[in-house]
Design a protein around this nucleic acid. Structure first.
Lengths: 212, 212
DNA sequence: TTGCATTTCAAACGCGTGTATGAAACTATC
DNA sequence: GATAGTTTCATACACGCGTTTGAAATGCAA
């Protein structure tokens, strides 16, 4: 119990390497070298490589989800139980965007690890991923409280599109940068969040107006 | 020259397997088994596994891009050189969505292969991918002609978001299905296209209105 | 048919991977 | 300080991968 220094060293090194280079390119030998421990330590402490990844994913998704739920809670309290729809979207996409884009200093390995996990979809993670849906349902519920007159299906699509825009912006920032020849400022994280939230809100409210 | 039956059999088998299972899970032995050819045939005809993937990617991106540009051309001719913005978005996301979702019968291995390629980002493809930006610039140019009063930066973001929504809908249709408990109909491809196009148009025009 | 180039085939090679082993080093309790 | 339990370490193992090899089969012109 004293010496789980080794355990945490492995977890931190693995998180950082996976966040930076993805799952496919990182071997156990890379991890133990970065953690400065012996090769056999991973199997001793975690059982297998897959179990290490699984543990990492579970603990890190708790971190990300807590951040999002904190923002959501703040927004709901500010509105007396009914958060503004833009605040809900901001709580949904803000933490991940801030953790993955923006200045290096305040990037979080946890957020970038989670994005990798959602991109590369490696077997040990795929099996646990169902919990994410439960987490998102909380946001769907908050949206329903915020916009009680809207069709549920529209709300689901709105949530889906908001995540899509955030996720893809992180993933393909390089392409957008080349396409716009640098004119889309990817360092202005708050500006990006505002843009995504704005489009998401408009997608819901504008569509409702178009129907009426 | 007579017997490039083997070549095309390998290409077709590889395309189908990669489309179905992704790059990480498909080995050369899987491919040659599906194509019913000898293991060494891949190296004989293509040089290496990476060169096979690269050739596949180049030829298939021609197919997808041609489809998109055809729709764009039709839309521009219908508008006398200026396509309607919704038609541009439909040309951008329609072909891929139709090829990846919808009834099994009319799904195209080419479209699904391209989506895999854009998701998994395997080294041999990453190096060629710059051409995609040139292809997208044609759509950016069409958008500029369609909405000459808009800021270029907004157009780039609009294009980026449209692709993001389409791409993520293909990729994560499973999650949306679970989240909505089946209420988001993922077989209604035209409905999905309309939704994405609608949001994309609204994102551009609504934002402009909000400024004014 | 003969001869040469092309294509196929079974088998093996080298390499990197995750995992297992058993001895050595350490830690803590009596 | 001896002993039992925990953790580290160097090393080796088994396996799957992409690739190579050299001989056999095939195609085709003279």
């Amino acid at each position: 119990m004293a010496a789980d220094h080794t355990r945490t060293a492995i977890l931190l090194a693995a998180e950082r390497l996976y966040a930076e280079r993805g799952f496919a390119d990182v071997t156990m030998r890379d991890i133990v070298a970065a953690a400065d421990v012996n090769l056999a330590a991973v199997n001793y402490h975690f059982g297998s490589k897959d179990e290490l990844i699984a543990e990492l994913f579970v603990s890190r998704s708790l971190v990300t989800n807590r951040e999002r739920l904190n923002e959501l809670k703040t927004a709901e309290e500010a509105g007396g139980g009914r958060a503004r729809i833009d605040a809900i979207f901001a709580a949904l996409v803000g933490p991940t965007l801030r953790g993955c884009l923006g200045p290096d200093k305040q990037r979080s390995d946890a957020a970038r690890f989670m994005i990798r996990a959602s991109i590369e979809s490696v077997p040990p993670i795929r099996k646990i991923k169902n919990r994410e849906v439960d987490h998102l349902k909380r946001f769907a519920a908050a949206m329903r409280r915020s916009l009680p007159d809207h069709d549920d299906v529209d709300l689901f699509w709105g949530l889906h599109f908001a995540l899509a825009m955030a996720h893809q912006t992180i993933r393909d920032s390089e392409r957008l940068n080349k396409l716009s020849e640098g004119r889309c400022d990817l360092n202005d994280v708050q500006g990006i969040i505002n843009r995504i939230v704005g489009v998401s809100v408009l997608a819901l409210t504008g569509r409702a107006k178009a129907r009426a």
